[in-house]
Amino acid sequence: MGARQTWRVDASRPDLRGQVALVTGANSGLGLQAALGLAHRGARLLLPVRDTRRGLAALDQIRSTCPQADATLLPLDLASLRSVADCAALVGEHTDRLDILINNAGVMAPTRRRETADGFELQFGVNHLGHFALTGHLRPLLEAAPQGGVVVTVASLAAGRNTIHFDDLQSRHRYSPFGAYQQSKLANLLFTQELARRAGENGWNLHARAAHPGWAATSIIHNGQAASLPAPLGAIEDTLGTIVLRVLGQSAARGAEPLLFAALSPTARDGDYYGPQGMGERRGPPGPAHVPAAARKASAATRLWDVSERLTGVF
């Protein structure tokens, strides 16, 4: 990964006028902050959301802080492969290129096992397979970007705490709320590395990088979606978890910096992973992140890709 480095978003403001960026999960938290960072640099935004009401509220916030923002909402439910395909088709009606794709949306640790519309375990289906399919559908637009579109997939510190259970990917035989989340985040890292490898091998004009926000204090914890803490079990745990993130972690704006670093920094490299540089990578300015051993297994990345391609019918 190279030496640790410091980088502040405010200190590096490339002009993104004329470029098109798509951010999933931009109605709040990290996605909203990443979208704001891109808007302030002049990028045209495409913002796929599942909840139109929350999407409109986020759009109002973007335009209030960045009046010149060019932003468009699109419908997307990552828990439905049909919705993913429909959204990608709509993106193609709005633009003939895609310079930046930030795969940020996600769910975490529902107490009971839930399934997507296609029968996948919800976290694996949304966090990994939904974004895998979306990226595949958008590949022609990413390759149409003059410098090659940059794909940033958001992982988590939790990614290093599990493995890919190929014998039970959908957690049908044994479901652990946080274990399934850890698996999905590890899948995000493996997907990034395999996408970067295949892009280089096949001459695809795109770039693939991963990032994590450390411990970012966002509304994600209220939805049972903490960055790397055990899933909330109730109001007390929810409150304590939020306090822990605020005291030991950082704001959503700071948490979004590694995402923007991976997308925009001239030193960001394909296949690499970025996160906060403080103790435990929980907070601090962005730079290279530690890649857990489970995410360095090329055979697992290739196998996961093949399984994902078969399950989604994309790529």
Rank of each mutant, 00 (worst) to 15 (best):
R97H: 07
L98E: 02
I100A: 01
I100H: 02
I100M: 03
L101G: 02
L101F: 01
L101E: 00
L101A: 00
I102P: 00
I102V: 10
N103V: 00
N103D: 11
N103L: 02
N104L: 04
N104K: 00
N104R: 00
A105K: 01
V107Q: 02
V107T: 09
V107C: 04
V107I: 12
M108L: 15
R112T: 15
R112Y: 09
R112D: 12
R113P: 04
R114I: 05
R114G: 05
T116I: 09
T116L: 09
A117L: 10
A117T: 15
D118N: 13
D118E: 12
D118V: 01
G119R: 07
F120H: 01
F120S: 01
E121N: 04
L122Q: 06
Q123R: 05
V126C: 11
N127W: 07
H128L: 04
L129D: 07
H131I: 05
F132I: 04
A133T: 04
A133D: 03
L134H: 08
L134P: 14
G136V: 11
H137N: 09
L138G: 07
L138H: 08
P140W: 10
L141T: 00
L141R: 00
L142F: 01
L142P: 13
E143Y: 03
A144F: 03
A144T: 08
A144E: 00
A144P: 14
A145T: 04
P146Y: 07
P146I: 08
P146M: 07
P146C: 14
P146W: 04
Q147L: 15
Q147N: 15
Q147K: 09
G148T: 07
G149I: 03
V150Y: 01
V150C: 12
T153L: 02
T153D: 10
V154I: 13
A155H: 11
S156Y: 08
S156L: 07
A158Y: 08
A158R: 03
A159N: 03
G160I: 11
R161Q: 13
R161F: 14
N162L: 06
T163S: 10
T163L: 07
I164M: 02
H165S: 14
F166W: 13
F166C: 07
Q170P: 02
Q170I: 07
S171A: 14
S171T: 10
R172A: 11
R172H: 09
R172Q: 09
H173K: 08
S176I: 05
S176R: 09
P177Q: 11
F178E: 02
F178T: 06
G179Y: 13
G179T: 10
G179C: 08
A180M: 13
Y181S: 03
Q182V: 15
Q183Y: 12
Q183A: 13
S184W: 08
K185I: 13
K185S: 14
L186W: 11
A187M: 10
L189A: 13
L190G: 08
L190A: 06
L190S: 10
Q193F: 05
Q193S: 09
Q193P: 00
Q193T: 08
Q193W: 05
E194C: 10
E194Y: 15
L195P: 03
A196E: 02
R197D: 00
R197C: 00
R198I: 08
R198F: 15
N202L: 12
N202I: 06
N202A: 08
G203N: 05
